[in-house]
Structures are given as C-alpha cells and as structure tokens.
C-alpha cells in the first residue's frame, strides 16, 4: 500500500480502520475497531447513547486522536503529523449535531472561508462555488444573512453546504437532526438523500431509521465501544443476529 500517491483506484476502500483502540484517560472508549468503507458507500451507525459512535467518526478526521491501530483515509495514514491531519481534513467534511456555524460571519462567508484559506481558491470562484452548493441545499436567498437569523433546519443545511464547498470525498454526519424541531428534520434529511443519490461517500450517525432503510448500504450497530453487528438494512432490521441489537431495535422501533 502506497501512502505516497493517493489511491486513485476505485476498488480500494476510501477509509480503512485496522485494530483501532482509543482511551479517554483510563476509559476504554473504542475497542478493536475494524472497518473499511468503499467509495460511494453509505453507512449508517446506530447504537445506544454513550456507545462511542461520535468518538468513532471524530477519529476519522482526527478531531480525536486514537492510541492504537491505524486509520487510512484516501491513502493517507492518520498519524500525529500535522501535515497528514490537514490533508485528511481537506478531504473529509463533517456535519455536527449543533451545526457549529460561525455566528459572526454571513452564510456566504461561512461557506467561502475554508475554500479561500485552505484550498487557496480566489474569492470570486469560492463565492460561485458557495452559491452553487447553497442552491443545492435550497437556500441561496439566505446567503447574506447571519446564521443567527435562520431556523435550525436552515442552519443545518448551511452547515452541509459549508462542508460541501471544500469538495470533500467523504462526509461525516454526527446526529445531524437530533437538535432540530420535528418539522425541520425532513428538509435536512431530504438534502442528505439528494447528496447520497449523487454518490457521496457518507458515514451517518443517526436514529432516523427511515433514512437508514432508504439510503444505507450498510448499517453498523455499536455498543460499549465495539462494533457489535453490521449488515445491509434489510437484514439488519428484519433479522438481527445479536441480542443487544435486538434489544436496541425493539426499543427504537417501538413507536
């Protein structure tokens, strides 16, 4: 495996995680994680609160560092080398539960900041790209407002557009709809479904099982820092193998 030249081979997985372990102090939060994500694959990660879902996807763009094992993203090995971390973050977009928009910048500035300063894109081009993606998430008319003037659903769509402006190869979503009022969940999920249909590689932590059924190629169930079970949605929801999965599904699908 060459870490020099980014793998352009479409067959090769875009993310490979091998025997990864992570501790918070003495607390073993991720245990022997092995996961490989193919290009254009959509993965939904489910599991009870505190099972390590967020921690797992945050390790992928090095928001958290892992202590053992390897993570390779698009041919680049994640070490504590700052160069590698920055290279990976350029290719991996992330959408947070609490949006994390920059409240002092307009929507447009939120979207152009990173392309201009990280991708060194000329300002004009960055603005064109930003308007393109704001159109895709269906809020181009809000470009000159501040995030504080938008609804939660609109803010989350801006956050998605902001990540897309970096033209990432992988998108990570950490419970993108959990902080939203019910009537706004759909507009965000629709945006994500559009994105999936365009072939983006996606890792989504969510409790929206409808979304998982419709979009996911694979559903991963985590508990207590381990990947307990993974399967295609059909089998995952109808023929769960593990007891913990069954219990979880019975709780979450009850209503």
């Amino acid at each position: 495996m060459s870490s020099e030249a980014p793998a352009l081979n479409d067959q090769e997985p875009i993310i490979t995680i091998n025997g990864m372990n992570k501790w918070y102090g003495n607390f073993h939060v991720l245990k022997d994680i092995n996961l490989s994500v193919a290009r254009q694959e959509k993965i939904v990660i489910a599991g009870p609160s505190g099972s390590g879902k967020s921690t797992l996807i945050r390790c992928i763009n090095a928001l958290e560092e892992h202590q053992e094992g390897s993570i390779i993203v698009d041919g680049v090995q994640l070490t504590d080398n700052l160069k590698n971390i920055e290279a990976i973050r350029k290719e991996v977009g992330m959408v947070f539960q609490s949006f994390n928009l920059f409240p002092h910048l307009t929507v447009l500035e939120n979207c152009t900041l990173a392309p201009i300063w990280v991708r060194k894109m000329p300002k004009k081009e960055a603005e064109e790209v930003a308007m393109h993606y704001l159109g895709k998430v269906r809020i181009p008319e809000q470009a000159h407002k501040f995030p504080g003037q938008l609804s939660g659903g609109q803010q989350q769509r801006v956050a998605i557009a902001r990540s897309l402006c970096m033209r990432p190869r992988v998108m990570l979503f950490d419970e993108p709809t959990s902080a939203l009022d019910p009537e706004m969940i759909k507009e965000v999920l629709d945006t994500m479904i559009d994105l999936a249909n365009e072939g983006m590689t996606m890792l989504v932590v969510t409790h929206e099982m409808g979304f998982a059924r419709q979009v996911a190629d694979r559903v991963i169930f985590m508990d207590a820092g381990e990947i307990v079970e993974q399967n295609n949605p059909e089998d995952f929801f109808h023929h769960p193998q593990n007891e913990r999965t069954k219990e979880f599904l019975s709780q979450i699908l009850r209503d």
């Binding site: 920055e86 973050r89 977009g93 947070f96 928009l101 910048l105 900041l113 300063w117 970096m166």
Partner: peptide, 25 residues
C-alpha cells in the same frame, strides 16, 4: 468548543482558526 471543531473539520490551521473564528468572536 464546537467553534474550534467546526474550523478544524474544514481544515483551517491553528492560526487561521484563531484569526478568523476564535478571536473575532
């Protein structure tokens, strides 16, 4: 903390994050 994380996830460097995101606010 989300502000730093948002900036980090976009690939902004430490000083860029301070200059454009953290210090202005």
């Amino acid at each position: 903390k989300g502000q730093t994380e948002g900036a980090d996830s976009l690939g902004l460097s430490f000083w860029q994050t301070q200059r454009f995101i953290i210090l202005p606010q």
